[in-house]
Design a protein around this nucleic acid. Structure first.
Lengths: 343, 343
DNA sequence: TTGAAAGCGCTAACAC
DNA sequence: GTGTTAGCGCTTTCAA
């Protein structure tokens, strides 16, 4: 059982004052070469682990954390994020943390930018952001950096050279997971990938999922399944789907890359088909069709967990000085009618 | 934004000393009726939330936590628990926590009891226990209670009147999850539930999973699938399985209720069959057959997460005075060849 | 029964 | 450059 050393111990061992040790530990400078090496020597010897509790006790400052994410009114996918944030707040309520959530309209770049301006007015120490619009997000985050605002992104991964902390899923891999499920459900036939969305804000998301899905079948031994992808608009889904059905008698499976599988399920449940459906996300409407077995599987992107983890990382960073993991990939949950409510 | 009150604030408001406030807050007695009501009045007014950080800083005591679980040497299922425990320790290493793990031989009740005796010698403040042997565990935990040792159970749920904290899975529900998977894989045919174990220590586990599995098919509209259960010994698995195959030409699916699906997969992979296999747990050997697609699905009982959560609950209880949740049911993870490594 | 005060480990302001 | 010290909020001991 190792002894836990304190600053006082180190000071005694190095024959200097506690203040000097502190300056060395925090690289605050103003330490002579002589004492610096003395302290370093001691630190090399022992295993010093700062006491984060004492450190944070000292800190009487209340941290301001802001969250920037789409308004769930426009897309219920984002609803669980609120729960995740509330849970993280509750868990850390005895720490000096103040969280403010800013919601933007995900159909408007303009609103995204303006909401971020409002956010900046409250002078956050850290921001948890869903970088919905790619290019604009890069700018916004650069701006955070220049203002020394710590940031963590979730849900949408920005692949740039800059190191940007991210919590989310490997979307290509989730496409592979879906492909494996489809593979196991079907002996042969035709599978449609449907990108179902009103506007194509989710373009990057959908492409990655498709790439993974295709990749699975390309490297698989099962050559009897044919896959093709389509872009449908929600507003015209019925027509598009009917055309698809008419033109492909052997349509056996549909993989919907957005959270709107219920729209497909609704239409198919009225027909006499045995088409397999795999979709994303535990929206109420999706669950409904999962329970009545029109939808076979849902893949949970776990927005709640994403928000919870992201916020927790920021809090741990601010309060306990822990470092933020650059990349946190959450597990890809497969959901069927029996395990959805336990998530 | 509410002010956060400190003991000092309360003392000032109630016109008493900090010591008196402390005595009231902790019901240590020795407070006159007069001052008691004065302090209570203030506490009624404001919303006081004690600062757990300051509290635990003061506390120089090192808590001793013991873990009692089966030795992974006897059953690799338990291996990930070690990781979960290490992770929880690492996360809380700046708190005064000392964790000691005691491993028992899961084939010997005697060893279970004796190992627990050794554990008690180190005077734990809290114990995380996998109550492998039912009756003996009840006694052991009663004994903990009488010694004021906080305990949390994981993996094996004890269903008694006493409130015993538990982290684990709803096993019957996991049986339903497996049944739904099987249902979706098969149109008709015969499904065997195989309880595969050398000795029947896992009896309770297996029964609950079977009950859930059967329940699904009884309340399902799919009446074309017939289910029957069997108890096989690992040592005789090849014979038993061959008999099963010979006697049931329409055998289409096998659900193995223990973590030994790989033993079935090994034998079947040498034959030309198309029998679906669903099993439990991410043992290396299971993963191997999941990857080569002999095993279709594994259900992850998540022993790592169970141990991690259990230990974290105990630490939060001891250090931060949080209360322990009585029942924590972990999600039932469905694993296929594409999402296993991300768990 | 009550209050005063020391101290947990760390930080930062201040004096030398 | 370096050492000293006050104080974060809470607990506990000791004196009154």
């Amino acid at each position: 059982m190792k002894k836990t050393y304190t600053i006082k111990d180190i000071a005694k061992l190095a024959e200097v004052s506690e203040g000097t040790v502190d300056r060395v530990l925090h690289k605050r400078g103003k330490v002579s070469q002589h004492f610096l090496s003395k302290v370093m020597a001691v630190l090399d010897e022992i295993e010093y682990e700062p006491n984060h509790i004492a450190r944070s006790l000292k800190n009487t400052k209340t941290y301001q954390i802001c969250v920037l994410m789409p308004n769930p009114q426009f897309d219920p996918y984002w609803m669980p994020c609120k729960d995740g944030i509330d849970e993280a707040i509750k868990k850390h309520k005895s720490f000096n943390i103040h969280v403010k959530v800013f919601l933007f309209d995900p159909t408007s770049i303009q609103d995204f930018i303006e909401t971020n301006e409002k956010l900046l007015d409250s002078n956050p120490d850290a921001v948890l952001i869903a970088p919905f619009f790619y290019k604009e997000s890069i700018n916004i985050i650069s701006n955070y950096h220049s203002k020394n605002i710590i940031s963590c992104t979730f849900n949408n991964q920005l692949k740039t050279n800059e190191i940007i902390n991210f919590v989310g899923q490997d979307l290509a891999q989730s496409g592979r997971v879906a492909a494996r499920l489809m593979d196991i459900l079907l002996k042969d036939g035709f599978v449609a990938i449907i990108h179902l969305d009103e506007d194509y804000d989710n373009a990057k998301h959908m492409q990655e999922k498709e790439a993974g899905f295709l990749d699975y079948f390309e490297s698989s031994s099962n050559k009897k399944i044919k896959v093709k992808s389509f872009k449908f608009k929600s507003s015209n889904i019925e027509n598009e789907l009917n055309n698809l059905l008419n033109e492909n008698i052997d349509l056996s499976g549909i993989f919907i890359t957005t959270s709107k599988a219920y729209q497909v399920a609704k239409i198919l449940s009225q027909k006499e088909t045995n088409i397999r459906i795999i979709g994303y996300d535990l929206l109420e409407k999706n669950i409904e069709y999962l329970q009545n077995k029109t939808i076979d599987f849902l893949i949970n992107q776990n927005p709640k967990q994403q928000a919870y983890s992201g916020l927790t990382f920021l809090i741990d960073y601010l309060i306990f000085g822990k470092d933020m993991p650059n990349l946190t990939l959450l597990p890809i949950d497969i959901i069927n009618s029996e395990n959805y409510h336990l998530q």
